[in-house]
Simulated scan of single mutants.
Amino acid sequence: MLVHPQFDPIALQVGPLAVHWYGLTYLAAFGLFVLLGRAQARRPRFAAAGWAPAEVEDLLFFGVLGVILGGRLGYVLFYKPLHFLANPLEVFAVWQGGMAFHGGLIGVIFALFVYARRRGRPFWEVADLVAPCVPVGLAAGRLGNFINGELWGRAADPGLPWAMVFPQSGLAIARHPSQLYQFALEGLLLFALLWLYSRGPRRPGQVAGAFLLGYGVFRFIAEAFREPDAHLGLLSLGLSMGQWLCLPMVLLGALILGLAARGRLAPVH
């Protein structure tokens, strides 16, 4: 069995200033988003609509706000509503951790809607530009989870060549390195599929719908190997909270993709 290396969470320290690996993965995610967003803006569909590099940077700002606010509120509402109801001031204690991707996604969708309204651009055009740029950021975040030795996987067959012991879990048992599964599935693979899919001529909303569908499916699969939250465990039908939250994503993504392919997706202004 492999053993998690237990990396030092601090990548670089100069005097009192400490730079954490997790912070670096976020910086990498933001940088990759800008690079990919600019490449998207040069594609015929978006170039014809007059997209400029500066707009991509503004879009990143809106997206970051959506991730932070939505991610925190999602964690509060989806994972620990009773705890935060009893301790409302802890909602603002973001330094203690606690973010939810599905909440962050809702926050980003709202931020894109606000951006589209302010810039006078069709919402689906903005969403289609952003969608292929997101998975690399997710990949960077999962790499940060692995470096930190958090969000480890469920128990695995010790004979599995890549089974790994995470001492941080408090149990010396072989586990699935589920962070790396998510890195590969909802990060690298989803990026490759969406980037190739978005190269061709697509109707408004098709790429955004493909993202929702693809992420929901890949996250649902990865959740089967990820240790569920200790305070929740497995819920109805033996599914984790993450899997239950993926189901509406898959359904909504399939609906948007199907309507967009038929040219029946209602415009959002």
Rank of each mutant, 00 (worst) to 15 (best):
E227T: 15
W152R: 04
Q168A: 06
P122V: 04
R175Q: 08
D8I: 04
F61N: 11
A163N: 07
G31Y: 12
Y197R: 03
L252Q: 00
A230Q: 13
F191S: 02
F61C: 14
L185K: 08
G214A: 13
L234Q: 13
G144V: 09
G263S: 06
G144M: 12
Y215N: 05
S198E: 09
A224K: 08
Y22H: 10
V94Q: 04
A230D: 15
G63R: 15
S169T: 08
R226H: 05
L69D: 09
A18Q: 11
P201M: 12
L60C: 14
F113I: 11
P161N: 11
G107D: 14
L24H: 07
V268R: 13
W244A: 05
Y22W: 13
F220C: 03
G263V: 07
A210H: 02
F225G: 02
T25K: 11
S178H: 00
L17W: 14
E223K: 00
I68A: 10
R264I: 07
P228D: 06
G97Q: 09
S240P: 01
V134Y: 11
L194F: 11
R154W: 10
R38K: 15
P53D: 09
P167N: 00
V250R: 01
L112R: 07
K80D: 15
P122T: 03
Q40F: 14
Q182T: 02
R142P: 00
V114Q: 10
P167G: 00
V108R: 08
G74Y: 08
I147G: 00
G141I: 09
F101V: 05
I106C: 03
L12P: 00
E90F: 13
H231K: 11
L232H: 01
L32T: 05
F220R: 00
I68R: 14
F62L: 15
A49L: 13
R203C: 02
R219H: 15
L239A: 06
G238K: 04
G120A: 11
G149M: 05
A11D: 02
F218H: 02
L188C: 06
R142S: 01
H269E: 14
R117Q: 15
G15T: 09
G103I: 06
E186T: 04
L194H: 10
F191R: 03
A139G: 02
A127E: 11
R42L: 14
H102L: 13
Q13E: 05
R43H: 09
E55M: 12
L239I: 10
A86Y: 09
L194Q: 07
G216N: 09
Q6P: 02
R202T: 06
G70L: 11
A86E: 03
G238E: 10
F92M: 15
F218L: 13
I10Q: 01
W244H: 07
L82V: 04
D128E: 10
V3A: 13
A93N: 14
A222P: 01
L2W: 09
L24W: 12
L232W: 01
G137F: 05
A192L: 15
P135D: 08
V91K: 03
L24G: 02
L2D: 00
P177V: 01
I173R: 03
Y26Q: 07
F113A: 07
E227W: 09
V114K: 12
G216D: 15
F92C: 10
L194S: 06
F84L: 05
P122Y: 10
L32S: 11
L251S: 03
L2C: 03
A260T: 00
